[in-house]
């Protein structure tokens, strides 16, 4: 297990490097670079100075290596300094956003909690809805409940979140007036009042994302349960007179959860991508909204960094899913 973990970690490094190169080159070689933003009337020597100030006059491989160094060395050092009050990173060049002229990472750090509260709650809600639906659908296969669940899952797969989101806004915010249409990022939870306000403004984005996730996870849960229901050990458990509850919720559920847990882990990075839409629709000021702002503003360092963070999330959670699968299922042996 340990060797497998180490091998997978080592394999993840070249993958990440390759991805970082792709992201860097795609964004860097695009026509919308800062050089094309400078008016042609600017004299060439001033132009040279501007480019130098932006740090884009070096050849591309040097800039790539510098960016890697900033991403993996300078920024973590800065984080270390901020936490422990040291100053190891003093004088080192950080990744600077073109838009705000300040380092990229503190901006992301400010945005991240917004994303995590909304997305994290949404995923949790989605899982909590999905598991009972999947379990009961499988237990009563082809029943009315199961068919309703199938329909719900199919709709959840097919209706894009931006449409469910707009529908929710129209129904719950405009017609019924239960929830605010826009998320208020500046709201601070200090007492019961503000806590309720926070709950109300989170309700819609959480429901939209939660339902979309619940659809897929409930399907996996159902098929995994069905696979286990027909196994011999289930018949044995019933034959020796175990209550039905224990058979289903202890024996079958435990074994069926193994693949579902990996699916849940695999789904985490994709919801960050999906959150871009929800954040924009509801005005949640998270990293998804930051990415869209950066793209609109041609803020290349910000775009590169955010896209690479998304990629790291995907690779890391793939790795976690693999490891969890190996740990939970003793039949899987990697070495």
């Amino acid at each position: 297990m340990l060797t497998f973990t180490l091998r997978r970690l080592l394999l993840a490094i070249p993958t990440l490097l390759l991805i970082s190169l792709v992201i860097f080159l795609l964004v860097d070689l695009a026509p919308g670079s800062p050089a094309s933003e400078i008016p042609l009337t600017v004299p060439p020597e001033v132009r040279e100075k501007i480019l130098e100030a932006l740090g884009v006059n070096e050849p591309v491989h040097i800039r790539y290596l510098l960016w890697l160094k900033q991403f993996f060395w300078v920024e973590p050092l800065n984080g270390f300094d901020a936490v422990f009050g040291t100053n190891y990173a003093e004088g080192m060049q950080r990744i600077i956003s073109y838009q705000s002229r300040s380092p990229v990472f503190p901006i992301i750090g400010e945005r991240l909690p917004q994303t995590l509260t909304v997305i994290g709650t949404a995923y949790l809600v989605g899982v909590l809805i999905a598991l009972p639906i999947g379990i009961y659908s499988a237990y009563r296969q082809y029943s009315l409940f199961d068919q309703a669940g199938t329909l719900f899952a199919m709709i959840g797969f097919s209706v894009p979140t931006f449409f469910t989101g707009t529908l929710f806004i129209i129904i719950f915010a405009v017609w019924l007036g239960w929830f605010p249409t826009k998320y208020n990022t500046t709201l601070e939870v200090v007492d019961w009042e503000t806590f309720l306000a926070q709950l109300r403004q989170m309700a819609m984005p959480v429901m939209v994302l939660g339902l979309a996730n619940a659809a897929a996870i409930s399907r996996y849960m159902r098929s995994s349960m069905l696979e286990n229901m027909g196994q011999d050990y289930v018949r044995t458990a019933r034959a020796k007179g175990m209550p039905e509850r224990t058979v289903v919720l202890k024996h079958v559920l435990r074994n069926s959860l193994i693949p579902v847990v990996t699916v849940i882990a695999l789904g985490i990075p994709t919801i960050f991508g999906g959150a871009i839409i929800t954040e924009n629709l509801f005005g949640v000021n998270g990293i998804g909204a930051a990415l869209i702002q950066a793209i609109r503003g041609n803020d290349l360092p910000m775009v590169q960094t955010l896209a690479f963070i998304f990629a790291i999330l995907i690779v890391v959670f793939n790795l976690i899913a693999d490891l969890i699968y190996g740990m939970l299922d003793p039949r899987i042996r990697y070495d």
């Binding site: 993958t15 390759l18 991805i19 792709v22 992201i23 795609l26 964004v27 695009a30 026509p31 919308g32 990075p269 960050f272 991508g273 999906g274 871009i276 990415l291 869209i292 793209i295 609109r296 775009v303 955010l306 896209a307 998304f310 990629a311 999330l313 995907i314 690779v315 793939n318």
Partner: peptide, 26 residues
């Protein structure tokens, strides 16, 4: 297959947004 794995690990929506935004005018 490594190439396929790499594409699967790319953050697609952000990259598509970047591609469309940056190359549209060109």
């Amino acid at each position: 297959m490594r190439l396929t794995d790499m594409f699967l690990a790319l953050p697609l929506i952000p990259l598509l947004l970047v591609m469309v935004m940056l190359f549209r005018d060109r």
